[in-house]
Design a protein around this nucleic acid. Structure first.
Lengths: 395, 395
DNA sequence: GATAGTTTGTATAGCCAATGAACTTATTCG
DNA sequence: CGAATAAGTTCATTGGCTATACAAACTATC
């Protein structure tokens, strides 16, 4: 209730350090101190001291100076490689794994174990993942791990780091962090798989490829999750349960869903429906499914799913006023097939469509995006608040 | 793209002034300087200088000291009455008007003209409203008008202050601010009626009655608009077109909507449908309609509308993770009638419902809420950034 | 009814961080 | 080689918050 805290002198430092760090990390190409000053409006003197601190803390590095034109050549700055890293973890129906990413966005290390985890025992599986995570951390010796984010396919209470229910894993009411057994000093949180994957689209790839800062990310798998990103910020809702697109009603008279309601999107466009429509097994690889759905006799299956997806998306767009949708998960490869039906729905059902059509594109980061997103989220926290790292480096 | 600006020393002042102003304005009862210090974490010395400036600027006042218990009696602080005011304006299908509100939340003055404005000519009507607004400003001589917000029932591009389309007025592509002819020095914006009404729920009533800071406000009239408020901030979407709940699809095979799509919520729970269901005219007063819908023979009409409303709300809640819905407009009085059908839908369709049921309550501010909300929005801007007012008072 | 006790509000010295202007450094161009 | 140019650094100055001490205004008690 009580607004934001007081602004002390130290707050100035905090904010300006973050501003400088952001400027360098988010820049498409290396900036000099002078560039940063011009871009942020600070004086070169201020930027200089801040940059020095960020270098000292291991968050930025100086690249070799290159001279172009008259004047003293600029010293280009870039995020430091392999000094501070983030750890992304995930358990999903068909694999479990971890990925280590550094501030440059490079994947430093990863372990991914493909395996069917439907109905696996939560404690044992999470203990295995914890072991895997500790292995990764041991292999990252010399680098400081900023934090870990665990992605799970289900309803995660982000305030309590509690998994309420993950229907496809068959898990419910799990406290995953306790079972992982990570060092207590490591900031760790649990998040929904789709939301962390969305963050990967925002930060987890080279700057040029990054998604615009406002979009809806839709992740198709057995369940259909979504994440809402507005102006570079994830919109999680009150408990982090936003984006349950899979249970938006497509037709109230439709088939019953696992969730107990009727006519949910999942029953029209979920992976289970897609595979059975074309006579495949749920464990089929995504590219095989895409191939099979490209065949002429799969056209009605595809257009039915696309229409349902488009209808649900239209509802979301009408509620949220978003003009860009990224399709991830199984849908990534299906974009060309699904797009006609989707855009038709968006065109007719979105009230604002005449003035700004909605873009539907495949998600740029596809490969285990939630792992990258989880790692990137930890790193983002460092960029947004570098002060603790300065203090630690000085101490 | 380029992050936030630099933090100068002056930024500290700006932020702390805002923090103090917020603390006093949002407090349920008057706070002393010492209270503010304790609550914000600043020192009494700092708070003292800041409070003095805010008093000087006419934003706060000292109330007579009351002594209770030992020690020097505290001087209670409160928002100043009738010094700075906000102006809310609105054109809707059945009236046009303006309202002047001060920092205490009191309505200082208002002019409301009940009148059927469907199909009225936009330029003439807005010029009339402009005249009315100038009258109100003249009558508020001695008070400083912080800003004006015009509420319109339609798609408003909040970045360009452009009305794209207001189907119920029959207006399209209007630039309302130019037609109002307000003084150029007055900050003025145009907004959607439902969104400004939602802001009234947040700020426009005595603190105790204020809605919690996260809710969905649904305004039922001919159209059905909604506004999403998360943590005290309106979620407008990219252009301010969020909350088009009236065009969420209830049944893709349903009747055709004015918007061209089929089965929109508006066709099940809009006022037009409600009145024709019970044989009334569209111009009927809201309380007459409520009375008529309370009759036993209106039960199916009510439950059909409630179920549709509940289904659309469930979609919204699944996407947004909000656990409180305020019903405004015609719906305010219908809450007891509609609630059973609505909550049934929410209970079965909202994925998170087992862990946190959704509250459905009538909106606390009902009477021309958009007027109050528009005025309150201007005042909120003053509270959130008092610095310019300090400077003006000093100069 | 004077005095101790308590809390509010104000004054003053000190500190921290950003500024601006001058200065140094490193390059290109003529 | 020197003039021009731009990057980065140094340093006195300024603004704003903190801490500490102090003045003010009240209650409670002997």
């Amino acid at each position: 209730m009580t607004s934001t805290g007081p602004a002390r002198q130290a707050s100035l430092r905090e904010r300006n350090l973050a501003t400088v760090a952001r400027a360098v990390v988010d820049a498409p190409e290396p900036l000099s101190r002078a560039d940063v000053a011009a871009r942020t409006g600070m004086t070169r003197a201020t930027v200089s001291t801040l940059v020095d601190q960020l270098i000292e803390a291991g968050l930025l590095t100086e690249l070799p100076a290159v001279s172009s034109g008259p004047g003293r050549p600029a010293v280009p700055l870039a995020p430091a490689a392999r000094t501070v890293v983030g750890l992304g973890l995930e358990v999903n129906v068909d694999y479990l794994g971890g990925r280590v990413v550094d501030l440059t966005g490079e994947v430093v290390d990863e372990i991914v174990i493909a395996e069917n985890l439907r109905g696996s025992p939560a404690p044992a599986t999470l203990e295995r993942l914890g072991h895997l995570a500790r292995d990764l951390m041991a292999r990252a010796r010399g680098m400081r791990v900023a934090g870990a984010h665990l992605a799970l396919p289900g309803l995660v209470d982000t305030r309590a780091n509690l998994l309420r229910i993950a229907p496809n894993l068959g898990w419910s009411d799990v406290e995953p962090l306790a079972l992982l057994g990570l060092p207590a000093s490591l900031p760790a949180t649990v998040g929904n798989e789709a939301k962390l994957a969305a963050l990967a689209q925002l930060w987890g790839c080279p700057v040029a490829e990054r998604a615009s800062r406002t979009f809806l990310y839709v992740s198709g798998d057995v369940g259909i999750g979504a994440a809402i990103v507005i102006d570079g910020a994830l919109f999680g809702g009150k408990r982090g349960w936003s984006g349950e697109l899979g249970h938006v009603t497509v037709d109230p008279a439709g088939p019953t869903c696992r969730c107990g309601a009727s006519g949910c999107l999942e029953r029209y466009a979920g992976k289970e429906v897609l595979v059975t429509d074309v006579g495949l097994d749920i464990d089929v690889a995504d590219d095989v499914l895409v191939d099979r759905l490209s065949a002429p006799d799969a056209r009605t299956a595809v257009s039915t799913a696309g229409a349902a997806l488009g209808q649900a998306m239209a509802d979301a767009v009408n509620l949220l006023d978003i003009d860009r949708v990224l399709l991830g998960g199984v849908y990534t490869g299906l974009v060309p097939l699904l797009r006609p039906a989707i855009t038709e729905q968006l065109r007719t059902r979105v009230l604002g469509a005449p003035w700004a059509p909605v873009d539907v594109v495949p998600a740029p980061v596809a490969d285990h995006a939630a792992l990258t997103g989880g790692a990137a989220a930890s790193l983002r926290a460092v960029v947004e608040d570098p002060m603790p790292w300065i203090a630690a480096a000085a101490g």
